[in-house]
């Protein structure tokens, strides 16, 4: 995330909501607060239809994160 931001390109990370505390630690360590959209946990055991649902859940937030000034 930091690498892409340094190139001047806005970026958003998709992260399992179980990992919110990990993002906080990462931000603290790197001195950088990335744009993050949280995806409802779990992901790995889901079937195709459930995964599509996850994508539909987040698409507006993703666009929002990339267009926020």
């Amino acid at each position: 995330m930091l690498d892409i931001d340094r190139m001047g390109t806005p970026a958003v990370a998709l992260v399992s909501d179980e990992f919110a505390s990990g993002v906080a630690s990462w931000s603290d360590l790197h001195g950088f607060d990335p744009a993050v959209v949280y995806v409802r946990h779990p992901i790995q055991p889901l079937n195709e239809a459930e995964l599509r649902g996850r994508a539909e859940d987040i698409v507006d937030s993703v666009i929002g994160a990339l267009t926020r000034s």
């Binding site: 990992f19 505390s21 990990g22 906080a24 630690s25 990462w26 603290d28 360590l29």
Partner: peptide, 11 residues
């Protein structure tokens, strides 16, 4: 040095 903490970036 690296800041790795269980529950932080250590998952």
């Amino acid at each position: 040095v690296g800041g790795a903490r269980p529950g932080g970036t250590d998952r």
